[in-house]
Design a protein around this nucleic acid. Structure first.
Lengths: 203, 203, 203, 203
DNA sequence: GATGAATGAGGATTCATTCAT
DNA sequence: TATGAATGAATCCTCATTCAT
């Protein structure tokens, strides 16, 4: 679709994307009518079609912006110190925090994913990024003799990532604002012990 | 809404409920138009309104029927033998099988739950049934000295149930037909070790 | 339409007519759905069509029953004594009373008359009966030299009857239950003086 | 509801209101389907909902326009000369003329008033305006010693106004186009004599 | 005669999209 | 570029009427 050439155009397009994020967060994907977006952005109805040709198109834009933040959660804390268990806990804490920040958008993505393969694939890609990172971590611990060598690292990463994702879904997708501390403890403990670490004897 | 008095009426109402299950499974909740249901059932459009007054109303009926099957998964296999690890694996296998049988309906429920608290609560209730069952199992193992006593049994059950649910969601909600054997292995291994059992030394 | 031959049939038909009167009075003509009538009568929906083929048909029946009562108001009190003014007042009182008794039906007739000439004509006939009676009264008074001979008796009767009818419409058609005594006084006074009687000197 | 900003919008909205007046006059309130209005106005079906959200909403607009004309009838002719009887006749003539000009709309209002209190109240307000005017006239004549002091002026005004209204209803509501001269004579005569004036001796 | 289920045409409303200004 | 009005297809729901049992 047309990119704006003037600065006025850039401002209008931005207003639309920001307005869209707001209404998608408030109303979800399906309940958002196209008309809601220009209305929220303070521009006329017809202007929407100057920059986007569907709800999906603008939603993709909103989602791309949010994805950046989400992926930081994986990258940051890479060279971090502490015991393996502490690092697992820290990673989960970061994951929940970034999930919380983007809960509204994630909820809308999940909703859209039911009908639109694009968003379904997107969720799969997001998961893959996290799963890759977890897989690498497990492999390293296995190499160090700290984690159970019988585990298929990628499958384990998928399952453990799923455990965290499901906790986040339940906590944030329908209006909650935090995963409680004891729940993070429990998840960390199950995760660590599950791959063969002893959570009570930090190496 | 009106219940049928005659056998003809009962037949028609049943045809509607069965037709509805089919179209909800095929098209999901939102893409199903009311008109699709009587069409599939082979009755006239107006007949739908003889028995139901909304898409939600008939969907509740469809869901109730499916719930019965889903809950069997918890009850069966109670007095079952085998080692704790074998029982965990068996329970997960049963869970995945019942999820698979009702995947279409569960997918539609998830979709509906985004807009309708009734279905959101329903999912919470379904989870609660499974979580309760898992909680009891963990407590028993803790009492027998087999499982980690430091674990909060209910939180652990929620997390482990979440791990299984997320595996099932990814496997079945978007068209898959099975959770592969090695994945069941991995989940069982993580689960068992996570609560403190040794998956390689069945007591 | 078919008249019932058995006594069971007669009972059913009666129940329909009585039920119809009730719902027409409560809901008016337009808001009454055919289904409301058999429901109120405690018979099945289809039975309605055994005896009537439309809402109009059964309403005619309801109306005919009410008309009898209405027309009594004209006939009774014919040979009555008292002064002319007293007789005018008595006639108006009787008229308001019979209007009140049938207000619900009259309201429904008025409503129906907007679309159906049958009921429009019916109202005209009802008026004609009253107007005739008033005309006769005025003529008699004119012959006796008591009333203004310059008046066109029939036109005067139409106008005075209209004055009374409009008072009744406003009092009863939208829920009222009486024409107040001072209003009857005023109408009687205007009526009497209007045709040339002196309301303060009863002959 | 949205008011148009552009002149094109104003034209369209006007076309709808005028088209609505036509169809309401021709078909009455109930028989007018919403689709009839944009069709008559020469715009598409959906355009109706750009400016109005129901048949009631647009009818209110139609009615407001007509009310202006109706109320002129009271105001004009205030300082008029002539004898009291001549003024009564002139006022009635004006009343019938304005009723005739708006008969179609008044008929639709009456019809709507059966189900909608808004229109019922509106009729009451219209009446009140006329009754007030008549009341003032009677009081003045009473003060001048020309009219019967025993009359309750407001009740008399209500009754006499009702006599005129009923004459107008019968003449115009179902297709007539005039109240005949002799009828106006009769009404004027009854009215004048009724309040104590002598119609044959103009002061 | 009575029942109640089934039918389908009719009417209301929404909203994505187009377009003249 | 921006505007906001216009379009009409898609969907929902109601209810008078018919009919097999």
């Amino acid at each position: 679709m047309a990119q704006p050439t003037t600065s006025r155009g850039r401002r209008t397009r931005n207003a639309l994307v920001h307005g869209a994020r707001e209404v998608f967060e408030e109303q979800g994907f399906h309940d958002t009518k196209i008309a809601d977006i220009p209305k929220r952005a303070g521009v006329s109805h017809g202007t929407f079609y100057t920059y986007f040709d569907s709800k999906h198109a603008i939603f993709r834009e909103v989602v791309n912006a949010a994805m950046g933040d989400l992926f930081q959660a994986t990258r940051s804390g890479l060279g971090e110190g502490g015991s393996p268990v502490e690092r697992i806990r820290a990673a989960n804490t970061r994951y929940f925090a970034s999930y919380a920040r983007n809960a509204g958008v994630l909820r809308a993505i999940e909703q859209a994913s039911f009908r639109d393969p694009y968003f379904h694939d997107l969720l799969a890609q997001i998961r893959a990024v996290f799963v890759d990172r977890i897989t690498i971590g497990i492999r390293r611990l296995q190499e160090q003799g700290l984690a159970d060598r019988k585990l298929d690292a990628e499958r384990a990463a998928t399952s453990l990532g799923g455990m965290a994702e499901q906790a986040a879904r339940q906590a944030f997708l329908f209006g909650g604002s935090s995963v409680e501390e004891p729940t993070v403890d429990t998840i960390t403990r199950l995760w660590a012990r599950g791959i063969g670490l002893d959570p009570d004897r930090p190496d």
